[in-house]
Design a protein around this nucleic acid. Structure first.
Lengths: 109, 109
DNA sequence: GTAACGTACAACCAAATGGTTGTAGATGGG
DNA sequence: CCCATCTACAACCATTTGGTTGTACGTTAC
């Protein structure tokens, strides 16, 4: 989860995710799109890969990068969990008066 | 946006967000919950605050921390935008054959 | 007024980040 | 084979992060 959000916390990497949705860009093709060295782009891709946000697929001597849909969904679900905490709070206010105890701690993913 | 996701990329800070949903915890009360110094917790709160994820409200000599619901929603919307990119891709495959051009770049926020 | 509490902020340090360059291993084409 | 391309990885550097301690300031309680 740390890796996931950390990977998302960089504008270059978020842009990469958008570009790699179609999974047709090699690393060097991707690198051509940014004003930085190939190695720097490689590092960004590695960060995305370790976060599970993209996968690499070999085609000849190229390595095609593709955004992993499920990983983005996972991040969204984490934020959903946070929002549901508000809902629980509202429920409590409108409905009843139970004590606190909503310690689900869904952070192990 | 960078600050937003960066703030979320730390388990301690995510835990803080959960705890501060009800907005009834002072910084020192919060600090008591973690195995680190008060100053360290203060820094975490500052990171969350600069990301817009929490606000502070003074009550006497205490400073109550409260999670900002809208900021979390904002992060979710960013991930929604990513997912809609996949939908656009599917649309293209099933429907027509238009060229690429979905450069909305909703990154300025 | 003074002590205790809660907060803010600066200085400092180890480790990680994000960038660079350089080198080396695979792969494909003439 | 030889060369160009694509990739991988290490070494290095400036900056940021995440933690510490110490000090100063405002507020509450006695």
């Amino acid at each position: 989860m740390d890796r996931l959000f950390h990977a998302l916390a960089d504008a270059t990497r978020r842009d990469m995710l958008r570009r790699c949705v179609r999974g047709e860009l090699s690393v060097s093709r991707l690198a051509a799109a940014y004003p930085m060295s190939f190695a720097a782009v490689q590092k960004h891709v590695t960060v995305l890969e370790r976060a599970g946000l993209v996968t690499k697929e070999r085609r000849g001597r190229e390595q095609l990068v593709r955004t992993d849909r499920d990983a983005v969904a996972r991040a969204r679900q984490a934020l959903d969990a946070l929002e549901s905490a508000w809902r629980a709070r509202v429920d409590r206010m409108t409905g009843l008066l139970s004590e606190e105890g909503g310690e689900d701690g869904s952070d192990t993913g």
